[in-house]
Protein backbone atom coordinates (compact mmCIF):
# COMPACT_ATOMS: atom_id res chain seq x y z
CA UNK A 1 0.00 0.00 0.00
CA UNK A 2 2.29 2.73 -1.22
CA UNK A 3 1.47 6.43 -1.16
CA UNK A 4 0.97 6.34 -4.88
CA UNK A 5 -2.11 4.12 -4.71
CA UNK A 6 -5.03 5.98 -6.18
CA UNK A 7 -8.34 4.31 -5.51
CA UNK A 8 -10.96 4.04 -8.23
CA UNK A 9 -14.24 5.25 -6.83
CA UNK A 10 -17.70 5.15 -8.33
CA UNK A 11 -20.12 7.81 -7.17
CA UNK A 12 -23.83 7.05 -7.64
CA UNK A 13 -25.61 10.36 -7.43
CA UNK A 14 -29.26 11.26 -7.65
CA UNK A 15 -30.37 13.80 -10.21
CA UNK A 16 -32.31 16.11 -7.94
CA UNK A 17 -30.10 16.44 -4.89
CA UNK A 18 -26.58 15.15 -4.85
CA UNK A 19 -25.85 15.58 -8.53
CA UNK A 20 -26.96 19.16 -8.24
CA UNK A 21 -24.87 19.46 -5.12
CA UNK A 22 -21.88 18.15 -7.06
CA UNK A 23 -22.59 20.71 -9.74
CA UNK A 24 -22.65 23.45 -7.14
CA UNK A 25 -19.34 22.27 -5.73
CA UNK A 26 -18.00 22.45 -9.24
CA UNK A 27 -19.11 25.93 -10.11
CA UNK A 28 -17.98 27.13 -6.69
CA UNK A 29 -14.52 25.83 -7.59
CA UNK A 30 -14.36 23.56 -4.58
CA UNK A 31 -11.45 21.17 -4.69
CA UNK A 32 -11.90 17.50 -4.18
CA UNK A 33 -9.87 14.48 -5.34
CA UNK A 34 -10.37 13.39 -8.95
CA UNK A 35 -10.76 9.69 -8.12
CA UNK A 36 -14.48 9.53 -8.63
CA UNK A 37 -16.45 8.59 -11.70
CA UNK A 38 -20.05 9.72 -11.49
CA UNK A 39 -23.10 7.72 -12.50
CA UNK A 40 -26.28 9.76 -12.41
CA UNK A 41 -29.54 8.17 -11.35
CA UNK A 42 -32.88 9.88 -11.26
CA UNK A 43 -33.20 8.58 -7.72
CA UNK A 44 -30.94 6.51 -5.51
CA UNK A 45 -33.96 4.26 -5.13
CA UNK A 46 -33.10 2.94 -8.58
CA UNK A 47 -29.84 1.54 -7.33
CA UNK A 48 -29.96 -2.24 -7.38
CA UNK A 49 -27.44 -3.79 -4.95
CA UNK A 50 -26.29 -5.66 -8.04
CA UNK A 51 -24.73 -2.44 -9.35
CA UNK A 52 -22.72 -2.00 -6.19
CA UNK A 53 -21.58 -5.61 -6.21
CA UNK A 54 -20.73 -5.44 -9.89
CA UNK A 55 -18.65 -2.34 -9.27
CA UNK A 56 -16.79 -3.90 -6.37
CA UNK A 57 -16.11 -7.09 -8.33
CA UNK A 58 -14.92 -5.19 -11.38
CA UNK A 59 -11.93 -3.47 -9.90
CA UNK A 60 -13.59 -0.50 -8.22
CA UNK A 61 -12.12 0.21 -4.80
CA UNK A 62 -15.01 2.13 -3.29
CA UNK A 63 -18.63 3.02 -4.02
CA UNK A 64 -20.20 6.16 -2.64
CA UNK A 65 -23.90 6.71 -2.94
CA UNK A 66 -25.24 10.18 -2.27
CA UNK A 67 -28.97 10.78 -2.14
CA UNK A 68 -31.53 13.20 -0.85
CA UNK A 69 -32.16 13.76 2.83
CA UNK A 70 -35.18 11.90 4.20
CA UNK A 71 -38.43 13.71 3.36
CA UNK A 72 -36.71 15.54 0.51
CA UNK A 73 -36.78 12.76 -2.09
CA UNK A 74 -38.28 13.97 -5.34
CA UNK A 75 -40.26 10.75 -5.57
CA UNK A 76 -41.26 10.54 -1.94
CA UNK A 77 -39.43 7.72 -0.20
CA UNK A 78 -36.96 6.38 -2.77
CA UNK A 79 -34.02 7.33 -0.60
CA UNK A 80 -35.42 5.37 2.32
CA UNK A 81 -35.52 2.16 0.32
CA UNK A 82 -31.93 2.83 -0.62
CA UNK A 83 -30.97 3.16 3.00
CA UNK A 84 -32.31 -0.28 3.79
CA UNK A 85 -30.66 -1.77 0.77
CA UNK A 86 -27.33 -0.29 1.68
CA UNK A 87 -27.61 -1.67 5.19
CA UNK A 88 -28.18 -5.09 3.65
CA UNK A 89 -25.39 -4.73 1.11
CA UNK A 90 -22.90 -3.65 3.75
CA UNK A 91 -23.69 -6.70 5.80
CA UNK A 92 -23.33 -8.85 2.72
CA UNK A 93 -19.91 -7.39 2.03
CA UNK A 94 -18.93 -8.00 5.62
CA UNK A 95 -20.06 -11.62 5.44
CA UNK A 96 -18.19 -12.31 2.26
CA UNK A 97 -15.01 -10.61 3.49
CA UNK A 98 -14.99 -7.24 1.78
CA UNK A 99 -14.61 -4.33 4.14
CA UNK A 100 -18.05 -2.68 4.30
CA UNK A 101 -16.33 0.66 4.60
CA UNK A 102 -15.83 0.44 0.83
CA UNK A 103 -19.51 1.28 0.51
CA UNK A 104 -20.96 4.44 1.90
CA UNK A 105 -24.30 6.18 1.79
CA UNK A 106 -24.49 9.92 2.40
CA UNK A 107 -27.26 12.47 2.13
CA UNK A 108 -26.34 15.60 0.19
CA UNK A 109 -28.86 18.24 -0.80
CA UNK A 110 -28.69 20.34 -3.96
CA UNK A 111 -27.53 23.33 -1.91
CA UNK A 112 -24.81 21.43 -0.07
CA UNK A 113 -21.89 21.96 -2.40
CA UNK A 114 -19.30 22.12 0.40
CA UNK A 115 -20.73 19.00 1.97
CA UNK A 116 -20.40 17.15 -1.29
CA UNK A 117 -16.76 18.07 -1.63
CA UNK A 118 -16.06 17.08 1.97
CA UNK A 119 -17.81 13.77 1.60
CA UNK A 120 -15.72 12.92 -1.45
CA UNK A 121 -12.52 13.99 0.27
CA UNK A 122 -13.32 11.84 3.29
CA UNK A 123 -14.31 8.79 1.33
CA UNK A 124 -11.33 8.97 -0.99
CA UNK A 125 -9.01 9.21 2.00
CA UNK A 126 -10.65 6.26 3.67
CA UNK A 127 -10.62 4.12 0.55
CA UNK A 128 -6.98 4.97 0.01
CA UNK A 129 -6.22 3.57 3.46
CA UNK A 130 -8.22 0.42 2.71
CA UNK A 131 -6.05 -0.20 -0.32
CA UNK A 132 -6.64 -2.13 -3.51
CA UNK A 133 -9.85 -4.13 -3.76
CA UNK A 134 -8.97 -7.76 -2.88
CA UNK A 135 -11.84 -9.12 -4.97
CA UNK A 136 -10.11 -7.82 -8.07
CA UNK A 137 -7.56 -10.62 -7.86
CA UNK A 138 -10.35 -13.10 -7.37
CA UNK A 139 -12.41 -12.26 -10.38
CA UNK A 140 -9.32 -12.34 -12.54
CA UNK A 141 -9.46 -16.10 -11.89
CA UNK A 142 -6.27 -16.15 -9.93
CA UNK A 143 -8.11 -17.00 -6.77
CA UNK A 144 -6.65 -16.49 -3.37
CA UNK A 145 -4.58 -19.56 -2.53
Amino acid sequence: MSNSFEPKILAFLCNWCSYAGADLAGVSRMQYPPNIRVVRFMCTGRIDPLFILKALTSGVDGVIIAGCHPSECHYGKGNLYTRRRILMTKKLLECIGIDPARLRLEWVAASEGPKFAQVIRDFTEETKKLGLNPLEALTRGEGIK
Binding site: I96, G97, I98, L135, L138, G143, I144
Partner: peptide, 15 residues
Protein backbone atom coordinates in the same frame (compact mmCIF):
# COMPACT_ATOMS: atom_id res chain seq x y z
CA UNK B 1 -11.61 -14.12 10.76
CA UNK B 2 -10.10 -10.93 9.44
CA UNK B 3 -11.85 -9.68 6.28
CA UNK B 4 -9.03 -11.05 4.14
CA UNK B 5 -9.21 -14.45 5.81
CA UNK B 6 -12.94 -14.51 5.35
CA UNK B 7 -12.63 -13.59 1.71
CA UNK B 8 -10.04 -16.30 1.24
CA UNK B 9 -12.34 -18.79 2.93
CA UNK B 10 -15.36 -17.99 0.79
CA UNK B 11 -13.48 -17.62 -2.43
CA UNK B 12 -11.81 -21.00 -2.00
CA UNK B 13 -15.26 -22.55 -1.69
CA UNK B 14 -17.12 -20.47 -4.26
CA UNK B 15 -14.51 -20.94 -6.95
Amino acid sequence: YSPDERLKFWSSHLQ
